[in-house]
């Protein structure tokens, strides 16, 4: 019995750690952004603009086929950017059902979406009627979500966080906001690492996380401690900035270079979007 408990705890711990590793990898790793592929070589500003255009197109289109075309394009770009398709698909498709199911499922039925019935069934004395417009709407919704999510994921996969933040700055997002975002990102990383460390530290001292009450205490104490440390660190970081000449408005490198290739890519993106928006809904 004890052994069983132990096993279970071990299992929870291991899956927790691997979930954390996945999170860290999914949101914080820059491995894909450092590969040499098509999108990685694009100027971040142009890339962001073109992806915004795709996104707006995907949201405005009303035909599943033309949104599907955009999705195909997105997958193609992923391939040319040397992102393993399996990796990309698991990331995007995994949590789409979560998003859409609770919205799509009710919409299938005649009560919510009236129309020509496609399929009628009878369960537990309830008559269920799935309608044609219901099915169409559901497909459109799912395709649209899948495409939008894939576009956003692809952009973030192929661009370094620091560059994305810089693009925000260039598009006129206030400095304070960008700085806060970048701090958040840093603390997210710090936090993930900390949780990992707590596990290892507690384990090395006690053997296992002895009792969940004890575990809770350790975690709570660590969070409080991190908070204190954080405020202390931000004061010291300010001193470090002062030491190197900061007097209020930080100046940064503007390391982006636009070449004809970039303009060509933007032109292509605009043509694709315009074409889809013009003709797409008749497909």
């Amino acid at each position: 019995m004890n052994k069983l408990l132990h096993k279970r705890r071990d299992f929870i711990e291991r899956s927790l750690l691997s979930a954390l590793a996945f999170l860290k990898d999914a949101t914080l790793s820059e491995e894909c952004a450092n590969r040499k592929g098509f999108l990685q070589s694009q100027d971040p500003r142009f890339k962001t603009i073109s992806f915004l255009a795709f996104l707006v197109t995907a949201v405005s289109l009303k035909s599943a086929v033309s949104i599907g075309t955009l999705y195909g394009l997105c997958l193609l770009l992923a391939v040319f950017s040397r992102i393993p398709l399996k990796h990309f698909l698991t990331r995007t498709l995994l949590f789409i059902p979560l998003f859409s199911l609770c919205i799509v499922l009710p919409a299938l039925f005649s009560i919510v979406t009236p129309g020509e019935p496609v399929w009628t069934f009878h369960v537990l004395g309830i008559n269920g009627i799935i309608t044609r417009p219901g099915v169409d709407g559901a497909i459109l919704f799912v395709v649209r979500i899948a495409t939008s999510v894939s576009l956003v994921v692809l952009l973030s996969l192929t661009t370094r966080h620091s560059e994305l933040l810089k693009v925000l700055r260039i598009f006129g997002v206030p400095q304070l906001f960008v700085l806060t975002l970048s701090m958040c990102y840093r603390y997210l990383y710090l936090f993930a690492t900390m949780v990992e460390n707590i596990f290892t530290a507690v384990k090395s001292r006690v053997g296992v996380v002895s009792h969940h009450r004890h575990g809770q205490k350790v975690v709570a104490w660590n969070i409080a401690n991190t908070w204190n440390r954080t405020t202390h660190i931000s004061e010291e970081v300010y001193l470090a900035m002062l030491s190197r000449g900061y007097t209020g408005e930080p100046r940064h490198l503007s390391a982006f270079h636009a070449t004809p290739k970039e303009w060509f890519w933007l032109l292509c993106a605009v043509i694709i979007c315009a074409g889809l928006l013009y003709k797409g809904d008749t497909l």
Binding site: S162, R251, L253
Partner: peptide, 28 residues
Amino acid sequence: GLVFQNADIQLFCPSVREDIAFGPLQFG
């Protein structure tokens, strides 16, 4: 120029390149 005891505090930019550039850029 001060090299801090804790390098984590001294390095506050999103990339190494920008961290190195920070000082000189402030001085114009």
